[in-house]
Design a binder for these strands. Structure first.
Lengths: 227, 227
DNA sequence: CTCTATTTCTATCAGCTGATAGAAAATAGT
DNA sequence: ACTATTTTCTATCAGCTGATAGAAATAGAG
């Protein structure tokens, strides 16, 4: 994939290059405007059903101009999905250095992932239902996704092994828990304001569903909030 | 939408009409073969990314011949999604005449819906992520979907009102529970053999997560199985 | 054997798709 | 003032899309 110019955060100055046919009402750098437009369209119509002309119009330029910023339509999708998983990867990295108990770790994980899926504009749907991410360009994304998913599985497995959770089938429980956390997908993006209590409720549902002794939940919540 | 010939269940007899260019190795009636092929392609590649030529090839005939059985590509999708929700509608109808307690009703609902989504080949993905179902032809489908969803919501609301469940936000709980039950989507279709214990585990997770007194679960399961 | 109905075929179409080529129009550096 | 660089434009393309028109090839009824 070719190297593309990076967005300069320089704003309000008249930009280099030929002016647009219809001047931008949006002061975002062009590549950001394109990602912004593409996100919304991919989310509402899907990738395959969105044309580059639709993206260009929403971004305020002509269709061939897209290809000055992204080498292909697929490259736009790739940029978006990479941004979608980035916060979760960072979270997992920072959590791994904490050494939390499985129940507390799972509570924090559930709350964070749900919130990211509800509020991160780059989240455009379940990757499992984006078949166009098969291509080789998405290997890094899939590695990230796999890491996020296996982190959930290991939290559940650790909780079961420690006797904190019911002796469930770990693979099935991870699948179902992850699906629950993906509830915000398909729904319109939420404000952080509304997402927070819903994320807490999701984490509670998951923990209560798995815990051998649900009375321990308040203690887990306290430990999760303590920092 | 035009009226299309219905599938005769007459088999093994040589069929009326011009023979195929490449004779069928599949003894299904043509419309069933088309639906069969389309289901698999829609599930793996999505609707927009699947061409009528791909469907035709998989079904064993030429692309224009599809339109003798279905008036449009969209009509194929419509037939599939209608078949996807039919079992759930029938279940809801039969359950409504039972007058079960909210907790038992929710357990049975969760188990059934999960199983249908895991085993019904007509389930090709979350309708929320099939933007092409916006069109007017899908009104009946969306009415059905709405009914299925609101049934879940009323089970949860009734349980909360009766003091059986925690005082959760009903809308949020319904959203999250429904997402959990949609876990089988995106994953390859499961055999009934494997789906049954997973469905039970999903129902347990939901009930334990909501119940004020999780110890009541075995009693609920017994009542749900009694018939 | 002829007529009709049915099913599938071949041939074809207009419209849209993602992408390329190369000119045009601006700024920045000297 | 000139040149280089950047960004966007217009013009265009080959390929695929869903769909239509009309001929061809079968079975069945009389």
């Amino acid at each position: 994939m070719r190297i593309m110019p990076s967005s300069t955060s320089d704003r309000s100055r008249r930009r280099v290059g030929r002016p647009r046919a219809r001047p931008a009402q949006n002061e975002l750098p062009p590549d950001q405007a394109i990602l912004d437009a593409a996100r919304k369209l991919f989310r509402s119509r899907g990738f395959a059903a969105t044309s580059t002309r639709q993206i260009a119009e929403a971004a305020g330029l002509r269709q061939p101009s897209l290809f000055h910023h992204f080498s292909s339509k697929t490259a736009i999708l790739q940029a978006i999905v990479d941004l979608a998983v980035a916060p979760e990867l960072a979270f997992i990295d920072s959590e791994s250095r904490r050494g939390l108990e499985p129940d507390v770790a799972l509570y924090r994980y559930a709350r964070f992932v749900y919130t990211n899926l509800a509020t991160n504009p780059n989240v455009i749907g379940s990757p499992l239902q984006f078949p166009e991410t098969d291509a080789g360009d998405f290997k890094a994304f899939w590695r990230a996704y796999e890491r996020i998913y296996s982190t959930l599985k290991s939290h559940i497995a650790a909780g079961v092994a420690a006797g904190l959770f019911d002796p469930v089938d770990v693979d099935v429980a991870a699948e179902q828990t992850f699906a629950l956390l993906e509830a915000p997908l398909g729904r319109p993006q939420r404000s952080a304001r509304r997402a927070t209590p819903a994320a807490r409720q999701a984490a509670v549902l998951v923990l209560k569903g798995l815990l051998k002794e649900p009375r321990r939940l308040p203690g887990i919540q306290a430990a999760a909030d303590a920092d």
